[in-house]
Design a protein around this nucleic acid. Structure first.
Length: 1039
RNA sequence: GGGCCUAUAGCUCAGCUUGGUUAGAGCGCUUCCCUGAUAAGGAAGAGGUCGAUGGUUCAAGUCCAUCUAGGCCCA
C-alpha cells in the first residue's frame, strides 16, 4: 500500500467539487456527528439568514466562522449538532414579492388577496433558500439543511406564540400609542433595530422661523418681539402646537443690525443673529412659560381645549447645542414632543395620512407627500415674512432599510414588549456573556442595553407571524399560546390550520371572560422576534423536544457580523431573558464587515458585490475561507478582492500542496509503504520538524479555544513554510534515497498539519488525507481526532538551535551576495561569531556548511588579529538597574576600550567608571559584535557575524565547475521532461582545460548525482545543452 | 452631538497587552543567487517624520491627554 499519485499541479476548484461528491456519497458530515454522539455537547445556534435575496460574500464570511469552530470542536471530541435555519417572514420578503408583482402599496396587496400574496411570499422564500443552500454547500459549511428550521413552519409559529403568551402573562406585552418611525411606502412602523439599518445622508431644508409673540410682559417691553425657532422638518410646522425652552437655560432678547427684536438662547445668539446683534434683555427659560405666540400656519383647527395651545412650554430635552434653543413642537411627529404636549394636555393634530400625504383638505399642501411639502412651506414662510434664515442642512435621516423611503415619525397604536422592565436583568446577562472582541460588551452592545427602549413589536403587514391576541367587544384580551390552545377555544379545525394570515384572521371564539365574540387583532409581529426565538422554536418547544431543548440551552457559541448587535444578538438575549430568565448564549463572536478593494461597503447600489459562488469557483472555496479566517483580524472591517485571495492560494495552499506532492513523488519512487512509517533513528532536523508539528497542534488548539483564527492561521502558514522551505529543502537528498526516517518524519508532519488545517480548509485537506493517509487510517480527515500533544514532546532547545542555524545561514547567504562569489562555488571556510554556534549539533552545523557551501566552519572569536570587537549597551538590561543613569552607563561602555572590556566580561564581569564612580557590569549588559578586519567578506546582524574566506584553490575551483556541470545536466533532464528516476546517458565535451580536468576528476560523483549510467567525453556535433562560462556542451538521453 | 473602532513602506497588513535605541512581513519594482517538488525559495537595494501635537519616562510605534482624518453604530 502506498500513496496515491499526487499531481504537482492542481485545479483547486475542480478538486473541491470532487471532494463535495465524496462527502455526499459517504455522508461524512453525519458520520462526524455520529462519531461524537456520546461526546460532551457543544451547542451552536445558527442565526438564520433572511431568505429574501441572493447570498453575498458577506454571508460567506459569517458562515466560514460558523463552520470552523464546530469542526474544530468535533475533532476535539465534542458533539456539535448544527441545525440550519431560514428566516422566512418579514417586510423584506413582502417587498421582494411586491416588486415582482409590480405593486406599489398595501392596497394592491389587499386587492390581490392576502392568501394569494402570502403564497407568493412562501414561494419566494423557497426560491431564495435554494440559493443559500447552494452557496452553503459549495463553501463547505457543514450544517444540517435537511433538518433546517423555517420560521414560517406551523410548529415554529406555535413556539413563538407560546413565548409571546409567557411575555403577555408577565404583563410585558402591551398596546400603546407612541410615536415611532414609520414607513409611509410600506405602511408600517419600524423597530429601533430596523431603524438602525437605514440612516442615509440627505440634504434637507433647515429653517429659522419667526414665531411672533402675541402677549405677555416682554411684548409690552419689546413690541414686535418674535421667537426664533429652528427645524429641519418644515412640513411639521403645519401642525405646530407649541414651542419649548429649557427651564434652566438663559435666553436673550436681542436687537439685530436690521433693528428687529428676536429671542434665542443666550449661547446661540451670535451664531443665529450675528455678532453685531445686541442683547437688550435676558431671561431664564422658566420665566417664559406660557408666553403666547402666533403659529405660522392656521390651516388646521385645534379642538376646543383649555390647554395652552401655541405657547411656550418647558422641556428638559431642549439644548443650546444647535438651532436656537427654542424648539418647535408637533406632537404627532416626535416622541419627545408627544410626551411633552401630553403632559400639558395639548391635543394631537395630525394632518398626514398613513400613506405619507397631507389630507386633501389641507390648504396649499393637501395631497402632497410630506417631504415634498418642504419647499412649498419654505416658500410660504418667505412670502409671509416669517423666514429668518434658510440653509441646506446635511444630516443622517432615517430611511426605510429596504425601500429607502424617508421615514416619518408618526403617532400610531402599536404593540410593545416592555423590555425596559427587564433592563437590569439584560445588563446582568450581558455581564455573564463572553464577547469576542471584548470591547463590544461594554462598548457598542452595553451602550445599546443601557439606552434600552421598549420593543415595538407589531407590524401592520401580511407575511409574518400573526400576533396571537384576540380581543372581544368588551376589550378583553386573550393571548393564545399555540394552535392547541386555539383549538380548545375555537374548535378543532385550528389544530391543523396554517397559522398565517388570512386564515387565522377568520378564527373567532367566545371571550373567556365575558363570552362576547373575540377576534384577532390585525397585526403581525416583527420578524426579528422570530429569529430571536430560534433556540426553542427550532425544536417546536414546548410541544415537542422538551428534553432536547433543556440540554441545548443556552448556546456555547454564536457568531454573526457586527450589524447584529442591535439585531439578532439583542433579540436572542432579550427573548431568552424574557422567557427563561437567562440569555441564550455564552460566547459570541462578532465579526467585522467585508469591504470591497477600495474599502467601501459592498452594496448593490455601488455594483461592487462579489458573487460568492463565482468567487469560489475562480479561486477555490478553501482560498476564500482561508482569507476570511486568517487574512487580517476577524473583528475588523477588511478589504477583499481577487488579488488578495489569489495570494492566499499561492502562498499557503500551493506551498502545502507542493510539499504533499513532493512526499508522494519520492515515496512512490522509492516504493515506500506508509504503513512502515516509524519515528526512529531521526536526525536533529527530523526531531525538530516533529517537535514543531507538536507545537503547532498545541498552539493552534489554544488559539482556536480563544476564537483567534488569525493567530492560528499564521501559525499554520509559518509551519507550512518551515516544512517546505527548510525541512524539505535541507532534506532533499534523503528523499532521493527513500530514507525511512525522512519519509516517516514528513509523513507525520503532513498528517498533523493536514489535521489542524482541516477546519480551516476542509477541501484540500480532505484531498490530501485521501491521497496520503486514508489508506492506512480513518476514511476522512474530518472523522479524525485533533492531533495529540503534550509539552514533553516539544523541544525548545532544539527550536532555538535550529533558529540559530537558520540565522547563521542567512548571514552566510548575505555574505555570499556581497562577495560576488556565487553559492555554487565552494569555499574553504567561514568564520562564525554567534553565541552558542559551536554547541550546535554536528547535524545542524553540517546544514550550515552545506547551505553556505563551505568546507569548514571556524570560530571567529579568539582570532584577535583578524577581528575587531565592538559592543553597545543592552538598554533593557541596564535600564532595569540604572534607571535614570542608563544613558551615562551606556556612554561609559562605548567610551571604554572594547577589546579590554570584552576580555574582562568574558571572564565574569567588568567595571566601568560612571561619573567618577565604578559600576560593575556583566556580559548580559552589553551586545557584543565581532567584525572581521579588512579583506574579509562579512555579514552581521544583532551581534552575530559570519565571515567568508574567499581564497580559491584549484581544487575548490574544480569542485565549483563540477557543481556547475551537475546543475547544467539536471536542468537538461528537467527541460527534457525526464522522470526523476530515469537513468540517463551523458556525453560531454569542452574546450576548456579546467573544465575537462574537473569533469574528469569528479566524473563519477557527477554521474551518480544525475543518475547517469553512461558517462563519456567525446566531440559533439550538435549540442543539446551548452554552458558558455564552462565552455561545456552536453547531450543526454534516456536509457 | 454621543459611543466604539481604525490610522505603521506605493498597496495589504503584523508589531502596541508586558516601553529598550537599525520598526517588520507579503505584494509590486531593481540587481543578484539557489533550484532533482514548487505558479516556489533566498540575499541586497529603493521605499517610513509609525496621522498631528503635547505629556509621562533614562528611554515611546508601544502608555496617557488633546486634536485631525476615515469607518461603523446611534441621535
Amino acid at each position: 500500500m502506498t500513496y496515491r499519485d499526487v499531481p504537482a499541479k492542481i485545479d483547486l476548484s475542480a478538486m473541491e467539487h470532487e471532494v463535495l461528491d465524496f462527502w455526499a456519497d459517504n455522508d461524512i458530515f453525519h458520520k462526524s456527528l455520529e462519531r461524537t454522539r456520546d461526546g460532551e455537547p457543544w451547542i451552536f445556534f445558527e442565526g438564520p439568514p433572511t431568505a429574501n435575496g441572493m447570498p453575498g460574500t458577506h454571508h460567506v464570511e459569517a458562515r466560514v466562522f460558523k463552520d470552523i469552530f464546530p469542526r474544530y470542536r468535533t475533532m476535539k471530541g465534542y458533539h456539535v449538532p448544527r441545525k440550519a435555519g431560514w428566516d422566512c417572514h418579514g417586510l423584506p420578503v413582502e417587498l421582494a414579492v411586491e416588486k415582482e408583482l409590480g405593486f406599489s402599496g398595501k392596497q394592491d396587496i389587499e386587492k390581490f388577496g392576502i392568501a394569494q400574496f402570502n403564497d407568493k411570499c412562501r414561494e419566494s422564500v423557497l426560491r431564495h433558500v435554494g440559493e443559500f443552500s447552494n452557496m452553503t454547500q459549495r463553501m463547505g459549511y457543514w450544517v444540517d439543511m435537511d433538518q433546517a428550521y423555517w420560521t414560517m413552519d406551523a410548529s415554529y409559529v406555535d413556539s413563538v406564540w407560546w413565548s409571546l403568551k409567557r411575555i403577555f402573562d408577565k404583563g410585558l406585552l402591551v398596546q400603546d400609542h407612541r410615536v415611532s418611525p414609520y414607513c409611509p411606502r410600506c405602511g408600517t412602523g419600524l423597530s429601533d433595530h430596523e431603524l438602525a439599518q437605514g440612516y442615509e445622508d440627505v440634504v434637507d431644508a433647515s429653517v429659522y422661523v419667526r414665531f411672533p409673540v402675541t402677549g405677555g410682559p416682554l411684548l409690552e417691553q419689546f413690541p414686535g418681539l418674535a421667537l426664533v425657532v429652528w427645524t429641519t422638518t418644515p412640513w411639521t410646522l403645519v401642525s405646530n402646537t407649541a414651542a419649548a425652552v429649557h427651564p434652566e437655560l438663559e435666553y436673550v432678547v436681542a436687537r439685530t443690525s436690521a433693528g428687529e427684536v428676536l429671542m434665542v438662547a443666550a449661547d446661540l445668539r451670535e451664531a443665529v443673529l450675528g455678532e453685531d446683534s445686541v442683547v437688550v434683555h435676558s431671561v431664564i427659560g422658566r420665566d417664559l412659560e406660557g408666553t403666547p405666540y402666533q403659529r405660522p400656519f392656521t390651516w388646521i383647527e385645534f379642538p376646543q381645549t383649555d390647554a395652552p395651545v401655541n405657547t411656550v412650554l418647558l422641556a428638559d430635552f431642549v439644548t443650546a447645542q444647535d438651532g436656537t434653543g427654542i424648539v418647535h413642537e408637533a406632537p404627532a411627529f416626535g416622541a419627545d414632543d408627544l410626551t411633552l404636549c401630553r403632559s400639558y394636555g395639548l391635543p394631537v393634530v395630525n394632518p398626514v395620512r398613513a400613506d405619507g400625504t397631507f389630507m386633501p383638505e389641507v390648504q396649499e399642501v393637501g395631497g402632497l407627500f410630506f417631504k415634498s411639502a418642504d419647499p412649498v412651506i419654505v416658500g410660504l414662510l418667505e412670502e409671509r415674512g416669517l423666514l429668518f434664515r434658510h440653509l441646506p442642512y446635511e444630516h443622517a435621516y432615517p430611511h426605510c432599510w429596504r425601500c429607502h423611503t424617508a421615514l416619518i415619525y408618526y403617532a400610531q397604536p402599536s404593540w410593545y414588549i416592555r423590555t425596559t422592565a427587564i433592563k437590569d436583568q439584560l445588563i446582568a446577562q450581558n455581564e455573564a456573556t463572553n464577547w469576542f472582541p471584548e470591547t463590544i460588551k461594554w462598548g457598542r452592545y452595553g451602550d445599546w442595553l443601557n439606552n434600552n427602549v421598549d420593543w415595538a413589536l407589531s407590524r401592520n403587514r401580511f407575511w409574518g407571524t400573526p400576533l396571537p391576541i384576540w380581543r372581544c367587544e368588551e376589550g378583553h384580551l386573550t393571548c393564545v399560546g399555540g394552535r392547541r390552545e386555539l383549538a380548545a377555544l375555537a374548535g378543532d379545525e385550528a389544530l391543523t390550520m396554517d397559522p398565517h394570515r388570512p386564515y387565522v384572521d377568520d378564527v373567532t371564539f367566545p371571550c373567556p371572560t365575558c363570552s362576547q365574540t373575540a377576534t384577532r387583532v390585525p397585526e403581525v409581529i416583527d420578524c426579528w422576534f422570530d429569529s430571536g426565538a430560534m433556540p426553542f422554536a427550532q425544536l417546536g418547544y414546548p410541544e415537542s423536544n422538551k428534553e432536547l431543548f433543556e440540554k441545548s440551552y443556552p448556546a456555547d457559541f454564536i457568531c454573526e457580523a457586527i450589524d447584529q448587535t442591535r439585531g439578532w444578538f439583542y433579540t436572542l438575549m432579550a427573548i431568552g431573558t424574557l422567557v427563561f430568565d437567562e440569555s441564550s448564549y455564552k460566547n459570541v463572536l462578532c465579526l467585522g464587515h467585508i469591504l470591497d478593494e477600495d474599502g467601501r461597503k459592498m452594496s448593490k447600489h455601488l455594483g461592487n458585490v462579489l458573487e460568492p459562488i463565482a468567487l469560489m469557483d475562480e479561486h477555490g472555496a478553501d482560498a476564500v475561507r482561508w482569507f476570511m479566517l486568517a487574512g487580517g483580524s476577524p473583528w475588523q472591517a477588511r478589504r477583499v478582492g481577487h488579488t488578495t485571495i489569489a495570494e492566499v492560494v499561492r502562498k499557503t495552499l500551493l506551498t502545502y500542496w507542493n510539499t504533499v506532492a513532493f512526499q508522494s513523488l519520492y515515496a512512490r519512487a522509492g516504493n515506500w509503504d506508509p504503513a512502515t512509517a516509524s519515528l526512529t533513528n531521526l536526525t536533529d532536523l527530523d526531531r525538530w520538524a516533529v517537535s514543531q508539528a507538536t507545537r503547532l497542534a498545541r498552539d493552534v488548539d489554544n488559539a482556536l479555544e480563544q476564537f483567534d483564527t488569525q493567530r492560528a492561521g499564521r501559525l499554520i502558514a509559518d509551519y507550512v513554510d518551515d516544512l517546505s522551505n527548510w525541512y524539505v529543502r535541507r532534506s532533499r537528498r534523503r528523499f532521493w534515497d527513500a530514507d525511512n526516517a525522512a519519509l516517516s518524519t514528513l509523513h507525520h508532519c503532513l498528517k498533523v498539519v493536514t489535521q489542524v488545517m482541516a477546519p480551516f480548509t476542509p477541501f484540500i485537506t480532505e484531498r490530501v488525507w485521501q491521497d496520503l493517509f486514508a489508506g492506512n487510517d480513518v476514511a476522512s480527515v474530518h472523522l479524525t481526532s485533533w492531533p495529540e500533544w503534550n509539552d514533553a514532546g516539544i523541544d525548545d532547545t532544539l527550536r532555538d538551535q535550529v533558529e540559530l542555524t537558520r540565522r547563521i545561514v542567512e548571514l552566510g547567504r548575505a555574505a555570499r551576495a556581497t562577495s560576488g562569489v556565487k553559492t555554487r562555488q565552494p569555499l574553504g571556510r567561514a568564520l562564525v561569531a554567534a553565541s552558542g554556534w559551536d554547541q550546535l549539533p554536528e547535524g545542524l552545523q553540517a546544514q550550515i556548511r552545506d547551505e553556505v557551501n563551505v568546507e569548514s566552519l571556524e570560530s571567529l572569536s579568539g582570532t584577535d588579529e583578524l577581528v575587531d570587537v565592538s559592543l553597545k549597551a543592552n538598554f533593557k538590561a541596564l535600564g532595569a538597574r540604572f534607571a535614570a543613569r542608563t544613558p551615562l552607563v551606556a556612554q561609559s561602555i562605548s567610551a571604554a576600550d572594547a577589546r579590554e572590556l570584552v576580555t574582562s566580561l568574558r571572564q565574569g564581569s567588568a567595571v566601568v567608571i560612571v561619573e567618577g564612580a565604578p559600576e560593575t557590569i556583566t556580559i548580559d549588559d552589553v551586545v557584543i559584535t565581532e567584525m572581521p578586519r579588512e579583506g574579509w567578506t562579512v555579514a552581521s546582524a544583532d551581534g552575530e557575524s559570519l565571515a567568508l574566506d574567499l581564497t580559491l584553490t584549484p581544487d575548490l575551483i574544480g569542485q565549483g565547475i563540477a557543481r556547475d556541470a551537475t546543475r547544467l545536466i539536471q536542468d537538461a533532464r528537467k527541460t527534457s521532461g525526464f522522470d526523476i528516476s530515469d537513468r540517463i546517458t551523458v556525453t560531454w565535451f569542452s574546450g576548456s582545460y579546467e573544465t575537462v580536468e574537473a569533469l574528469t576528476k569528479h566524473g563519477e560523483s557527477i554521474a551518480t548525482e544525475v543518475l547517469a549510467t553512461q558517462w563519456s567525453q567525446s566531440p559533439i556535433a550538435e549540442a543539446t545543452f551548452f554552458d558558455e562560462d564552462l565552455d561545456l556542451s552536453i547531450v543526454i538521453s534516456k536509457n
